[in-house]
Design a protein around this nucleic acid. Structure first.
Lengths: 229, 229
DNA sequence: TGTACATCAGTGAACGCGCGTTCACTGATGTAC
DNA sequence: TGTACATCAGTGAACGCGCGTTCACTGATGTAC
């Protein structure tokens, strides 16, 4: 390599521009899309590199230009999926009318599941299944959501004086309910408004039941036995 | 075949006895055990017939003497697992002291998860993952549990006048919470009493919160808006 | 701007391997008499 | 009880196939001057 004195030799275009790089990104996206579509009715552990490449219209060895292994692709899919989920939560959080918070939250969940069905299906599938690295990544993200929700809950006047522990417990219950709802919608037959309306109705009433429980917490179950009757 | 007049020709031992049949059952059990152990850290979709046979100490072709396919073995595993679960529920139901019903139910769940960890892991893994036939079989069983729980709930004096719909909704919330608890225990590191105590404590408090909500249902949230505030 | 060289995304042949499934078989167990 | 035959759980060889991974390559794009 010849260097020319102090010349910084930085005529180089910033990485991330240029025709070649742009095409590479497009192929990478095609690989991820291909995997996501194959995962619609299979688990990640049964996915093969060759299938994914085939689905992306690329030769198997080209896969290695983008990912070191299928596991790395799986982690990239988790990142992508949770970017979607975080956008969803931001939207849910911006809703300022407390009386509608339950109805609105479920509505937002449902519309996001519809818009990103493959992402949700992937997450739901891999949450307990197969590859340990994916499972742990997903669990960490969901735990993060739960903590954020606990923080949000504290802003409700009724819950202002709750212990952090109790808020985490309640947030866990809400997240479980939301996750189960998402699972139900993802597993439900596509475009069946009746089944879906029932799922949505159940979710809303379950969350309402939880809210009612929260209102009565510490006072209703009687003194001294608020942790497990 | 020579038949001898009206002679019933039934010196045949009843099927299910005899040395040969008994050995066959033992091999079948070994195949199921082998599969269950392999599934401890993998999903069913990635299981191979040859692995299962190897684990059972038998040649691959012997597999076909017992199951037509790995899917059939999967369904047999689901049957076996839910036989365990039903025994658990029967035990939980026989507990006659209503004040302890939550603590006792969680205790029973935890001890059964410990005793049948592989069964629970298998069910949790396959509930959303991979093979459609297994997924549907598991979903049907869980739906059955929910309905049975709804029936049981009606016996509580406070819930006697609830609509079937509301009881189903509440049962769904309880089952979700129990399933999430089982998932958490199955995923938790083995023999870590602190982590487990936290999971158990959360579950008990979540169920208590639900019970408190049920006590305030219809009355607490105010007239006319009990379905989703 | 034009030329010579470097980079690198995608190619295609080749490999050894474990897979599911078929088939004819073996020999212990079961049954008929 | 003893003998001859039937059953059938488990065997072992063989097949064609898709897999992950290696390697040397090609040719369009990018860079230096």
């Amino acid at each position: 390599v010849r260097t020319h004195g102090g010349k910084p030799a930085l005529e180089v275009g910033p990485p991330g521009t240029g025709l070649r790089h742009e095409r590479k990104l497009r192929t990478r996206a095609a690989l991820m899309r291909s995997a996501l579509e194959l995962l619609a009715d299979r688990s990640f552990g049964s996915l093969s590199l060759r299938e994914v490449a085939r689905g992306a219209g690329v030769v198997p060895t080209a896969f290695y230009r983008h990912f070191e292994s299928t596991e790395e692709l799986g982690l990239a899919l988790i990142d992508e999926s949770f970017r979607t989920l975080r956008a969803m939560l931001r939207e849910a959080r911006s809703e300022p009318v407390p009386e509608h918070v339950i109805r609105r939250s479920v509505e937002i969940l449902v519309s996001h599941v519809h818009e990103h069905r493959l992402h949700f299906r992937f997450i739901v599938r891999e949450r307990h299944s197969g590859v340990a690295a994916l499972r742990q990544a997903i669990r960490a993200e969901i735990r993060l959501f739960t903590s954020e929700l606990a923080t949000d809950l504290r802003r409700f006047p009724q819950l202002g004086d709750w212990s952090t522990d109790d808020l985490q417990m309640m947030a866990g219950l809400i997240v479980n309910t939301m996750v189960s709802t998402a699972e139900a919608i993802v597993d439900a037959p596509i475009d069946n408004p009746e089944v879906e309306a029932e799922i949505v109705g159940d979710a809303e009433r379950q969350l309402t039941l939880i809210a009612v429980g929260a209102a009565g917490w510490r006072t209703s179950p009687g003194p001294g036995n608020r942790a497990a009757s």
